[in-house]
């Protein structure tokens, strides 16, 4: 069922990772992503996997939940792997049959690309698993606030993102409900040719769009009823404050990057 998709879902908890300032987590996630592209040795991958596993354990996220998050991306991951495996040219041929050549370079690159994609995705999952969407947008807004001077509507953008994130689970639930209702009327979404299947989606998409517009309308009305008028002069109930643990997190993040750079230089 759709409910089992955990893409971008928040798992409430009260661990050190959950309590970190969202700004810290956002910056570290960006650093993590950048650092991931510097990794070019197996030792480097081992280090990143170890770091990721450590944070996952500290945050009390079950490894199974992490793996399930990767499930929707199986196609992209497999595709990346196969593409690199079959289409990398090299002299060190491992296996050859008619037009298929598999080279050692290709195998190497396929495995490292697959690892990189998986680590990239699970790293960002760790952010959304441990940080509520509200905290993420809050952090993002604060991080981007200097852009306000350049007349970038940071507040409006973060509000839009916040609303979008907020409605993902609602829309998934709604899709689930409409899907159940149409299946109960004998809708067949799984078999048939591609045009048939596309047509079979209409009974799903039309009610979903209608309800999304209805919800948007209701939300706008509710906001206006509470005299909402944008970000100007708005104060916050929860001020973000950095704490000692944030400093520790930055130091650990710096150590990870340093470790990656050292391993890269050493070629391990």
């Amino acid at each position: 069922m759709l409910k089992d998709i955990t893409l971008g879902q928040y798992f409430p908890g009260d661990t050190v990772v959950h309590r970190l300032d969202p700004r810290t987590k956002l910056i570290l996630t960006v650093v993590y992503i950048a650092a991931l592209f510097l990794v070019n040795t197996w030792g480097g991958y081992a280090l990143v996997i170890a770091a990721l596993a450590a944070v996952t354990a500290v945050a009390h996220i079950k490894p199974r939940a992490m793996l399930r998050g990767l499930k929707p991306l199986v196609f992209i991951i497999v595709f990346t792997g196969l593409l690199n495996l079959f289409f990398t040219r090299g002299d060190d041929v491992l296996f050859q049959w008619r037009f298929i050549h598999i080279t050692y370079t290709g195998l190497n690159r396929a495995v490292s690309m697959v690892l990189r994609v998986m680590l990239l995705v699970s790293g960002t999952f760790l952010l959304t698993y441990t940080t509520s969407p509200l905290a993420i947008t809050d952090g993002l807004e604060r991080l981007l606030s200097p852009l306000n001077k350049l007349h970038v509507p940071v507040y409006e953008l973060s509000l839009m993102m916040c609303i979008a994130l907020r409605f993902i689970p609602t829309l998934i639930e709604e899709t689930d409900r409409i899907m159940s209702a149409q299946k109960a009327r004998g809708a067949d979404l799984e078999t048939g040719t591609l045009p048939e299947r596309a047509k079979a989606l209409l009974p799903l998409l039309i009610p979903l769009f209608i309800s999304a517009f209805r919800r948007a309308d209701e939300l706008a009305l509710a906001m206006e009823c509470r005299c909402y008028n944008g970000g100007q002069g708005r104060t916050r109930m929860k001020e973000l404050r950095m704490a000692g643990r944030d400093a520790v997190a930055f130091i650990l993040g710096g150590l990870l990057v340093a470790g990656i750079l050292v391993l890269r230089r050493l070629g391990i």
Binding site: A181, Q182, A184
Partner: peptide, 10 residues
């Protein structure tokens, strides 16, 4: 017939 079945009309 699920709850609020009117939302399934299309």
């Amino acid at each position: 017939v699920f709850q609020y079945p009117e939302y399934q009309l299309f």
